[in-house]
Amino acid sequence: MSVTATTPAETAAAAADAAHFLSATAMRGGYGKADILHGCTLNVDKGQIAVIVGPNGAGKSTAMKAVFGMLPLREGRVTLDGEDITGLSPQDRVRKGMGFVPQVHNVFPSMTVEENLEMGAFIRTGDIAATMEQVYELFPILRTKRRQPAGELSGGQRQQVAVGRALMTRPRLLMLDEPTAGVSPIVMDELFDRIIEIARSGISILMVEQNARQALEIADIGYVLVQGTNRYTDTGAALMADPEVRRTFLGG
């Protein structure tokens, strides 16, 4: 029987990954022959809200897709709760505890709200009623509109359906790609309040957000990406207070 030796560097890297609930380390990848990500690293601890911000074309959504397994990595690795999941498909990552809400095409418009939520529980066996009730408590308007086709809802209500459907899988990590895109400021504030509630329940959050200032206000940790690499990493409060970050990325 052969035994593969582990180098000290590999041992140290594994220990660093295990220190975080989600660890996506030194990711390099892209589309075709072109790399979009250049050594990007994202870590999220249990119950933490991590926010990815940066200019257009910075690789924010690409990083999310890489974490979720929708984009194969040329270099780097992804671990969840200490387990290496780099080679797993998105479906298998859902089974490991990841939930992903894309920016667009995130509801089944011809299905009712309740049918959309039931679709979110496709990997589960047994009774889903308790989880459905938790979603309705989090988003009361969905209970009122549960028999209505999701395509007839407002943009903000459709986002609630999309988040609710992801929660039906009972994720340990919830990934949100631009959750407040196209909604009013009032609806944005409401969605952020619900995201805080989700994190307080123990679910980790990894979120890409175009409304950088508002997102960093609720972030435990923030990542500013530029051209597919980490430019700044700090607490949300520290990034908000950094003059260079404010001037360059937050409009002063």
Rank of each mutant, 00 (worst) to 15 (best):
E197K: 14
I128D: 14
S89Q: 08
F249V: 09
G32R: 01
V224E: 05
Q160A: 14
A9Q: 00
P171N: 10
I195E: 06
A13F: 02
G155H: 08
F139L: 02
L250F: 07
L138F: 11
L216N: 10
R231D: 15
G59K: 12
A150S: 12
L191E: 06
S2Y: 14
R28L: 10
G59H: 13
T125G: 09
F100P: 01
L138T: 14
R246S: 15
I123K: 03
F100H: 00
T180E: 14
L22W: 11
L206F: 06
G32D: 00
V67P: 01
T86A: 10
T125R: 12
A58R: 02
S61E: 08
R246Y: 04
M98V: 15
K96I: 15
G222W: 04
A166D: 10
A129V: 07
V163N: 06
I186H: 03
H38M: 08
E209L: 15
L239D: 08
V67E: 02
P90Y: 08
I196G: 03
T112Q: 06
S89D: 13
S201N: 08
L153Y: 02
Q148K: 11
T169E: 02
M64I: 15
G151F: 03
L142W: 04
L167Y: 03
P243Y: 05
G156Y: 04
L216I: 09
T86K: 06
P72K: 15
V208Q: 01
Q157F: 13
G69A: 13
Q210D: 10
T7D: 02
A13C: 09
V135L: 06
M207T: 15
L80S: 02
E217W: 04
A162Y: 03
T233A: 13
Q134P: 04
F68W: 01
G32V: 12
N106D: 13
F21H: 03
P109S: 12
V183G: 03
Q210L: 13
E75R: 02
S2R: 05
F108R: 00
R147W: 12
A19P: 07
L42P: 06
L37E: 07
Q159H: 08
D84T: 04
A15F: 07
F68S: 02
V44M: 09
M64V: 10
L191W: 03
L206P: 00
E75Y: 04
L225M: 10
T11R: 01
G222R: 02
G120M: 02
V51E: 03
I141V: 07
E10D: 08
K145D: 03
G251D: 05
L37K: 09
P140L: 05
A15M: 05
D84F: 04
R158L: 09
V224N: 01
A150L: 11
V44F: 01
H20R: 04
M98A: 11
M175P: 12
A34V: 15
V187S: 02
I52A: 10
K145A: 10
A9I: 00
K96P: 10
D193Q: 01
G39C: 12
V135E: 07
L37M: 10
G32M: 03
T180S: 14
I198A: 06
G120R: 01
E152R: 09
T7I: 05
T41W: 01
D242C: 14
T235A: 11
H105L: 12
I123T: 08
T180V: 11
G252A: 09
V104G: 03
G182L: 05
